[in-house]
Every structure is written in C-alpha cells, then in structure tokens.
Design a binder for these strands. Structure first.
Lengths: 297, 297
DNA sequence: CAAATGTTTTTTATTGATAAAAATCATTTG
DNA sequence: CAAATGATTTTTATCAATAAAAAACATTTG
C-alpha cells in the first residue's frame, strides 16, 4: 500500500451529505466551489465526482452535474476509513499509553508498534518524532524510544508551564481597549458557556471542546508561537483526560463552567488583581482534576 | 545505501587516539571497557578492533590486543564522515535558512531538499518533523512545508519565552541552602568565566559554548522537561547566531562575560530583587544582540 | 564462578518506490 | 476574456527492504 485515500473517502461522504440535502434533479456547484467547501484540491473533487457518476448518483457532463438520486447508507465510507493513518496512530498510541497502564521507562519498539497499530515502520517513526514534543517519550540516537509515562510529575510540569503562560497572557486584558477583538470572542464564549449550563444535564460532555477553545482564546493574545504550540499540547492531553475520566463528569464540568464565567467577568473588569485571582483559582482546579484522574488509575 | 556507519568511523578515530597515546607493545583494555569509554556498543567495538587488526595496527587474539604500531594520518576518517546523516542535515539546513536569506513563506519541497542535502526523502521528512519544534517551519497535512523565517518576530517570541522561563527559574536561588548542588555548579562556571576573561584576546570565541552551559544550568533548577526542551532550542539558535555573527564578537563576548559574573554574584546574594535586576539586564542584552544580528543581515 | 569474549537476535537508520493529492498549465465555453 | 473544466506535472504519504548498531544469549577462561 502507499498513500491512503482518506481525503477522497472523507470528501466523498461530505458530497453525499451535500447531495442528500438537495432535491433530485438539482445541479451541483462548480468544481472550484466544491473544493473550497470541502477544503481539498480540485483533483480530489474530480475523482469524487467521477466516482459519483459511476455509481449513478449524479450525471456528470462537463460543467453540468445533475443529482440523479440520494445515497444509500451502504455507499458511505465508514468513519474508520476517513482519517489518515498518521491521525489514527495518534489516537491509538495515546489510548495505549494513557489507558493501558504501561509503566514508566518501558522501552518502545518501532517494529512492534507498527504491527500493533497496523502501519508501516516509517509512519511509526515519524509519529514518534512528532509526538516527542509532548514530553511523554524520549530517545537518544541509536537507542530505543523510552516511555517517560503519564505520571504525576508529568501532570505537574505540564500544569506549571500552562499556568505561567496563561497568567502572563491574561495580564494583557487589563489594557485592551473596548474595541479589541478579544472582547467579542469572549462575548461569544460566554454565551456558549451559559447555553451549555442551561442544558448541563444532557450536554455536559460538550464542555471538553469548549474548554479547549476558551483557554486557546486566552493564550492566543500572547501572539507567541511557542505559547500557541504549547496550548496544543494542553488541548490534546486534556481532550484525552476528559474522554476517559468520566467520574463525576457532570459535576466537574458544571463547576468548571461556573469558574470560567467568573473568570470572564474578572477579565472584563480589567482589574489586574481580580483577573490574577480568578485565573489562579481556575487553573489550580484544572491541575487538581488532572492529578486526581492520575491517582485514581 | 542504508544505515550509515558513522558510529564505527567515529569510534575508529577515537581508538586511534587511544592507541597513539600509548607505547607500541602495550595492551588495550577489555571490550566492555572500550565500549563504555567511547559510549558505543560492544558490537561496534569489536568491528573496530577487527578492522584495526586487519590494518596491522593491533594484534588481536582473544582477550589480548597488543598495539603493533601508531596510526598514519591517512588512516583516519575525515570529520565529514563521522557525523550521522540526521545530524549533518540539521547543520546544512540551518545554514541554508539562517544564512541564505531565504525569504519568509518560501515553500519547501522534500524531494528538492533531499537532493540538495544529498540524503533520502524520508530522512528529510523526519528531520523537518523534528525541526518543526523550533517554530521556524510549519506544515499542514497534505500541504507543503512553509518556512516562517528567521525574522524579527521569531527572535522576539523566542526571547519572550526565554525570559519568562529563566526569570522564573532563578527565583528559586533565593531559597537554596548552602549545600544545594547548584552553588557548586555556579562556582565552577564562575571559574571558567574568569579564566576565559583572562585569555579573552585569543579565546573569545569559546564563549558561545560556555554561555549555553551557563543558561542551561540556571533553567535546569526548574526541573521541568518543557523548560529544558525549550532551552535546547535557545542553545541551538544562539549557537548558530554566534557562529555567523562575527561583528564585534570579542567585545560582545567580553561584555557578556562581565554580565554573567555580576549575574552570578547576584544569585549568590540570595537577594530576590537584585537577582531579578541582573537577570533582566542580561537577558535583555542577549535579546538585543540577537535582534541586531538579524537587522544587519 | 564472575568477568570477558564469542555468537545470534533484535532494533534502528536510511533508502527508494509508488499511489494519492496538490499544484500547475492548457483548453474550452458562456 | 474571465471563469470553469480538462490534462499534466509535481509533491506528499506510506510502505517495505537492508546494513549498521544495539541487545541478548551462550561459551570460555583466569
């Protein structure tokens, strides 16, 4: 096998969505238009159109693409098929080390991982190299990769830098003029928080994603690529943390939403001391939740 | 070609050093011993010994390895041959982007870089992935690598985080007891600084390496992998900065040494305010030197 | 019998090949 | 003739093969 055609498959599914949302007989937009919508190249769009044509879902002649029928469930590609190998391996690997109780200092073996995740060795290699920025694994030249482990030390070191970056970032809010774009983003975030709070009973698990966006928005005012990069690490670690630590999830998330709201109010106050207080309080809650989930394992 | 045997070649040269430093007729130590000395595996040591035996430099019979003669210059491997491909490419690439005036947003092409640096495409790929942590290049899936460039913004963002980390780290010195190992390290560093100052006329270019060790020692007290990791980035960038910005090098380095000495004195004083003052002063000098070298290009 | 050497197995570093996807260039059409 | 399509070229993602290096196992020797 070579490069996987997940882009094609995902785009294909998205095209089916587009088609099913319209009446039979309608025409599809131009190739460039579709390419922009799906965020893929026109080359791939044409492959998709060609495939849809072969299946008799559309009739494609030059610039006229007519919808002939809606899709059947079986014609869609499954979710498993639509994410690229490099993405799949990330999820599998994180699940393996964060869930699997692999002890610290375990040595990792490229070939074995390749077999385990059913990918080529180069893919594993590239993944491990890019993953090393998370600080969970390590290697020296000509030696094996070593899992440092998702330990208490890890959580503390991660949280420490996180707090330093975020406390530094939010100090900027004191001086932001009323028309600074950050305020508008905060407005929208606040709204989303309130709406989530209103439906907390059923939608509490959506908090994870909102949390990531909230903190990313705060640190983004630093306009510093190293801070942004680090925030990505935080997001991924917390994403998996939320995904697996389901104990008291609703209560934890509800409490966190309320902390966010107080935090937002503090930012709006432009009072440096108050901002600092709320930031410290919330970040410390977050750190403790992360730590607790480790100790419970 | 497959895996390059640079480890062998480097070890071979080191063995020649060992041999030339002793009289003909002397015996070499055991294999395990040599392996530890050269920091390579016994397997490679045996290959080296075997090669030395074939060349008639030693006589190797079981555990007896007798030196037959000293080496000739031509028998050594050249420096070029003794560093692994992955290391060579790093130097070449940095030279290319930091020296070559490549404009920001230039698109990089794996195949072209592979040809340019005379390595395989996978090696380039792996290098680019690992190099991306420096924040100088960037890529999105299925798209090309883009050079963000060694710009003023880069230097500022880098310096900003550096200052945050180091200022935070040196705050710890206030509370270190007299027997904390950091003091001893500082003592030795101070000595090296004074000695360098005494021979500044001739040895000024050795400051680069001392500078890296000095700052690494300071930030290492944070005991935080993300800080340490970041310090590596700083070291490499400054290493290349020192290597190429030769203007007023002696004066700059002498001034920096004096700042380091004041900085060390401040740390010893355990006076938080004074430490802060000297840290800020020196880090700001460093930032400005880095910036100036950019603007002069 | 512990430490050194000899032998075999495992693992990494590096390459090149190939299909997918993107990018570019050429042609058509309203 | 600008915007869309058609055809071609370039570039990336992924894999599998192989020699170097490390690691593990087995045997010898003082």
């Amino acid at each position: 096998m070579t490069k996987s055609n997940t882009r094609f498959k995902e785009g294909f599914n998205q095209c089916l969505d587009l088609i099913d949302g319209q009446d039979v007989g309608t025409e599809l937009p131009g190739e460039v238009n579709i390419a922009e919508m799906l965020n893929i190249s026109r080359t791939t769009v044409r492959n998709i159109l060609s495939s849809l044509n072969d299946l008799g879902i559309i009739d494609w002649q030059g610039r006229v693409k007519t919808i002939l029928r809606h899709s059947k469930k079986a014609e869609r590609f499954s979710d498993r098929e639509t994410s690229p190998v490099s993405e799949k391996i990330e999820g599998k690997f994180l699940e393996w080390i964060l869930q699997g109780d692999i002890p610290p200092n375990t040595q990792l073996n490229e070939l074995e991982l390749a077999r385990q995740f059913d990918v080529g060795t180069s893919t594993v290699r590239e993944f491990l190299i890019s993953f090393s920025r998370f600080g969970l694994i390590e290697k020296k030249l000509n030696h094996r990769w070593v899992l440092r482990g998702f330990t208490k030390e890890y959580a503390l070191e991660l949280s420490y830098v996180r707090e330093m970056f975020e406390l530094d970032a939010v100090r900027n809010f004191v001086d932001f003029p009323d028309d600074h774009p950050a305020w508008e983003k905060l407005d929208r975030l606040e709204e989303e928080h309130r709406s989530l709070l209103d439906h907390i009973e059923t939608r509490f698990s959506r908090f994870s994603e909102l949390d990531a966006r909230f903190h990313a928005t705060l640190t983004s005012v630093s306009k510093n690529r190293f801070v942004t990069e680090f925030q990505d690490i935080i997001s991924l670690i917390f994403h998996f943390h939320y995904q697996w630590n389901k104990k008291d999830e609703k209560e934890r998330n509800e409490a966190a939403i309320r902390e966010h709201l107080t935090y937002i109010a503090a930012l709006r106050s432009r009072d440096g001391a108050q901002i600092q207080t709320e930031a410290v309080k919330h970040l410390s809650t977050a750190r403790q939740t992360l730590l607790r989930s480790l100790l419970e394992n």
